[in-house]
Amino acid sequence: MPRYDYRCRACGDTFELNRPMADSSAPAACPQGHADTVKLLSTVAVTGRGGATPSPSSGGGCCGGSCGC
């Protein structure tokens, strides 16, 4: 289940809620009981070894490896 971040406009508290995507825009009360909250834009970081390997033709570097830098 996705996790969404919210901030309370009344007290400034930031909190998270796990809820279905269908409910992501539904109102969320802060833990202090205030109702004036806003959903924050979240970033997702995915790390790990997904099994993808770079192709031998990709030189890497700043411009694909062809500049010799």
Rank of each mutant, 00 (worst) to 15 (best):
P2L: 03
P2S: 07
P2E: 04
P2Q: 13
R3F: 05
R3N: 13
Y4T: 10
Y4K: 10
Y4G: 06
D5T: 10
Y6G: 06
Y6E: 03
R7W: 04
C8Q: 01
R9K: 15
R9Q: 14
R9I: 04
A10V: 11
A10L: 05
A10M: 05
A10T: 15
C11V: 03
C11L: 08
D13S: 12
D13R: 15
T14C: 07
T14D: 05
T14G: 04
T14Q: 02
T14E: 11
F15Q: 00
F15G: 02
E16H: 14
E16S: 15
E16K: 12
E16Y: 05
L17V: 11
N18E: 11
N18V: 10
R19C: 12
R19N: 09
R19L: 13
M21A: 13
M21N: 14
A22L: 08
A22K: 06
D23Q: 14
D23E: 09
D23G: 03
D23I: 01
S24W: 07
S24V: 09
S25G: 07
A26H: 12
A26R: 15
A26S: 10
P27I: 00
P27K: 01
A28R: 05
A29D: 15
C30E: 04
Q32R: 15
G33P: 01
G33E: 02
G33S: 06
G33N: 03
H34M: 06
H34N: 10
A35N: 12
A35R: 15
A35P: 03
A35I: 08
D36A: 12
D36E: 14
D36I: 11
T37V: 02
T37M: 00
T37P: 04
V38L: 08
K39P: 11
K39Q: 15
L40P: 11
L41E: 15
L41F: 04
L41V: 15
L41I: 12
S42W: 01
S42Y: 00
T43I: 13
A45M: 09
V46R: 07
V46I: 11
V46M: 08
V46D: 04
V46G: 00
G48M: 01
G51N: 02
A52P: 09
A52S: 10
A52W: 09
T53C: 02
T53I: 04
T53L: 03
T53M: 04
T53H: 06
S55N: 10
P56R: 00
P56G: 04
S57T: 10
S57A: 12
S58P: 02
G59R: 06
G59F: 00
G59T: 06
G59C: 07
G60V: 07
G60F: 01
G60R: 07
G61I: 03
G61L: 05
G61R: 11
C62L: 08
C63M: 08
C63Y: 03
C63A: 13
C63L: 05
G64N: 05
G64L: 01
G64H: 03
G65D: 06
G65F: 00
S66K: 08
C67L: 12
G68H: 08
G68C: 08
G68L: 12
C69Q: 09
C69G: 14
